[in-house]
Amino acid sequence: MKAMTSRSATEANQPMGSVQTIAVHHLSVNYRSVQALRNISFTVSSGQLIGIFGPNGAGKSTLIKAMLGLIPSVTGSVMFDDRPLTQQLERTAYVPQRSQIDWTFPATVWDVVLMGRVRKSGYFQRFSVTSRRMAIEALERVGMAAYRDRRIGQLSGGQQQRVFLARSLAQEADLFCFDEPFVGIDQKTEDVLFSIFRELVSTGKTVMVVNHDLGESITQFDHLILLNRDLIAVGDRATVLTLENMTRAYGGYVSFFSENAA
């Protein structure tokens, strides 16, 4: 399949300075003998809120993981500002699916947020005053500062997700990747997530979100990547959310949600 390239209209809104891009070329991933992703290529300009959509088993999480080098890919390259993304992972923040985390782990909210400062601190170093201040500010931004000394297992799902959001904020990353952040959370947390995603994007950061929910929240995204092992479509909502694309991705099971979503 041919590489699809898209420079969306929001590029004009880039902050001053060089235009950053994420370029994925011919990325393929196998799980044992099964092809999880087939020859995925796309380019997106940064400073956008990018949604990765598709049915269950479409390879959405796999795409994020392969881009970050968390799982091996058979072929392909992922560039961020013309350099391999895996060579600049200190610029990325990744929040895994909630189900990947052992919530009974003996750690407090404070411990988890400070993990966002581990890489910046460097080996054999204690957390600096700056790191501690950034961790507190991140907790305040997501409204969790009061829960600092709580064991993470005592929080609700939404609170846990906000703590992870705070951790990613403390990382001072340029590229944020969230895997299914809206699963099992409350409305308040969803609002907090989207408003912080917006703030990040407005300061030139790039936010990629794996999401399977085709509901109303889809209108929040600037840019969509529609997957079903192959790349079905990439671009702004009007480009991606066509009946033909949705039928190809979901095999006709989805009666299209709302006409005005696009």
């Binding site: 080098g69 200190e90 929040v95 890489r119 990747c177």
Partner: peptide, 12 residues
Amino acid sequence: SFDPLGAQATGL
């Protein structure tokens, strides 16, 4: 030990 994937994603 808490979040191997998250740690790996920061380049550890």
